[in-house]
Nucleic acid binder design. Structure first.
Length: 580
DNA sequence: ATCTGTGGCGCG
DNA sequence: AAAGCGCGCCACAGAT
């Protein structure tokens, strides 16, 4: 239990007095107790800031946080646990916390791939400090009126103390593991993710609803066609209605077996396409509509926040072990592309959307990593990459219109490469015979020998050392096992991680710098979505073109931190909505 | 009633 | 059919 001094500030004078002592500290821990989890509804009840010598507790219902602003917004590093929450909460109090460290993100980096240990502060406290944290006081703060109980005060102090001390333990480990650069990158990006969540994204509600209704009609029509086709081979109810549930794979396989006289092991897209019966196409159409109605339907409209009128999705800064961001509730990273759904992500009146994405990002990273001269040359030439590669390996001039099938084969290899695809996979994608696929792959690698060399070496090294890294040093530990199949799978992960992970690193750096530039230049623009190699920014109508140039510059600069041998290209567009 | 795993599918 | 990395969501199936 902490024996050191603390101050409970119940007046501005208390606060100012305590501030003078804290302001000179090199590192502070920060933690909030709140009424709930939604920064647009719930308020901060208690703010605790301090180190292992002294903590300051601020009763936010009685005292303005204004005197703390210089400290919170200033350069003194504040360590938190899951700081994106605290930073978002404080934005509702009009405070933009800067220079935040995060013990949760640190832990994710340190343990990346080593297993799914809990990331809670209580677990870290036990693991690093041998200290048990009892969380039973936490829920009490929402209902607290009047003063805090001694137990509540003790609880708040203890959390800050634990956070502070966990960071002290993590810091040398990050250094030992060579993870300082990555930890810094993540810490700097944290406010961008807090803002992303807090600001949310606007959705054209009537437009979205219209698309869903249309899909429902199409779904009904497809279902009617299916009923007609199946009516003689499945059971019907009293009214002669087909009772087959098209969502049930088990029932569907049975019914298809009777209708087509073929027993399918799986009923996915490929299987239905290869069915050789008209019912396959109708089922695919039905599925497509079901997907829209189910996944992209009303749930998105329900996600619109009653107060802000926007969708505040849950972005997970380290959502995948490669370092990629993930998003949920709802997932804004899998909106159908080339459809009218993306058009519904527009700006509210008076605002425009800037869409910016890295062109051919993963392949450029592969060029960088492998250093293959011919591969590097293809990027330096400019023009259509897949065509150039196809021309190179097939020895004739290929373009989108001349020999398009050769171009699409080259494209299949290009995309498969970063995943560690083999000849078998290539055969399946292209429809070539395995022998031909084998030949094609070896032609490819004859043109780009160092690409193969790099991929093989990188996987072998990772399996030997037990981890894989991005260019920036992010680490993924591999549980290397004896079994041949899992070893092969691990090798593919090892080939992919430096590529996917470096891409993620670039995107996070660019989000950090885009945010910084927009703020510095006083622009009322904000990042509203990020999708792996793409950033979506909402900007005032009059500033949209300036913003698009800023976004491009910062994304290019972020890319050039890791990609030096080939140009970094960012495609930018300004429009009424999200476009790709 | 509620949880967990799986197949399928949307995105990069 | 599978194939070739990463994610989340839906619906179903089977268990609790």
């Amino acid at each position: 239990m902490p024996q050191r001094a603390f101050t409970l500030a119940e007046s501005v004078d208390d606060l100012k007095h305590a501030m003078t002592r804290l302001a000179g500290r090199p590192l502070l821990a920060l933690d909030l107790e709140t009424e709930g989890l939604d920064p647009h509804i719930h308020k901060v009840v208690l703010l605790t800031v301090g180190d292992d010598r002294e903590q300051l507790l601020v009763d936010c219902r009685k005292v303005s946080l204004e005197p703390l602003r210089p400290l919170l917004e200033g350069p003194v590093p504040k360590v938190t646990h899951n700081g994106a929450f605290d930073v978002a909460m404080l934005r509702a109090h009009d405070i933009s916390v800067e220079n935040v460290l995060d013990t949760m993100l640190n832990e994710q980096l340190i343990e990346n791939g080593r297993g799914r240990q809990s990331l809670s502060l209580a677990s870290l406290s036990e693991r690093y400090l041998g200290l048990e944290l009892d969380k039973s006081e936490r829920t009490g703060f929402a209902r607290t009126s009047g003063g805090f109980t001694p137990a509540q005060i003790e609880y708040a102090r203890r959390d800050v103390l634990a956070t502070y001390q966990v960071l002290l333990e993590q810091t040398p480990r990050l250094a030992q593991e060579g993870l300082q650069e990555t930890a810094r990158l993540e810490a700097e990006a944290l406010p961008a993710f807090a803002d992303l969540r807090y600001d949310g994204v606007y959705l054209d509600q009537p437009g979205w609803l219209a698309l869903v209704e249309e899909a429902k009609l199409n779904q009904d029509q497809a279902r009617a066609e299916l009923d007609e086709m199946f009516k003689d081979v499945v059971s019907t109810d009293l009214f002669g209605q087909v009772t087959l549930n098209y969502e049930s794979d088990v029932d569907l396989k049975d019914a298809l077996g009777r209708l087509c006289h073929r027993r399918l092991r799986e009923v996915n897209k490929a299987a239905l396409r290869g069915l050789g019966h008209p019912v396959g196409g109708v089922l695919l159409r039905y599925r497509e509509m079901s997907k829209i109605v189910g996944t992209y339907g009303e749930s998105f409209l329900q996600a619109i926040h009653p107060k802000t009128g926007r969708i505040h999705a849950d972005f997970r800064q380290i959502g995948a072990p490669t370092g990629r961001v993930a998003c949920a509730n709802p997932n804004l990273q899998n909106i159908p592309r080339g459809s009218r759904f993306r058009q519904c992500f527009s700006g509210p009146p008076g605002r425009r959307m800037v869409t910016a994405d890295y062109a051919g990002c993963e392949l450029r990273i592969l060029a960088e990593l492998s250093g293959d001269e011919a591969f590097v040359r293809t990027f330096n030439k400019g023009g259509d990459l897949h065509s150039i590669v196809a021309s190179e390996i097939f020895g004739k001039s290929v373009s989108k219109s001349r020999y398009p099938e050769l171009r699409s084969r080259a494209k299949a290899i290009n995309f498969g490469l970063a995943y560690g695809m083999g000849a078998g996979g290539l055969a399946a994608v292209t429809g070539l015979q395995p022998v031909e696929a084998e030949r094609l792959l070896s032609r490819y690698f004859r043109s780009y020998p160092k690409v193969r060399q790099y991929l093989e070496d990188s996987a072998a090294l990772a399996l030997r050392r037990g981890f894989s890294r991005t260019i920036g040093g992010r680490k993924l530990y591999l549980r290397v096992e004896e079994d041949q199949k899992t070893r092969a799978a691990q090798a593919r992960v090892a080939k992919n991680m430096p590529i996917q992970g470096t891409n993620a690193d670039m995107l996070k750096i660019s989000m950090t710098s885009v945010r910084k530039r927009l703020r510095r230049e006083g622009l009322q623009a904000m990042i509203v979505n990020c999708v792996h190699d793409e950033i979506l920014v909402e900007a005032p109508e009059g500033d949209a073109w300036d913003v698009s140039e800023i976004v491009r510059e910062e994304m290019v600069a972020a890319g050039e931190r890791y990609i030096k041998r080939v140009p970094v290209v960012v495609d930018v567009s300004v429009g009424d909505s999200w476009q790709k």
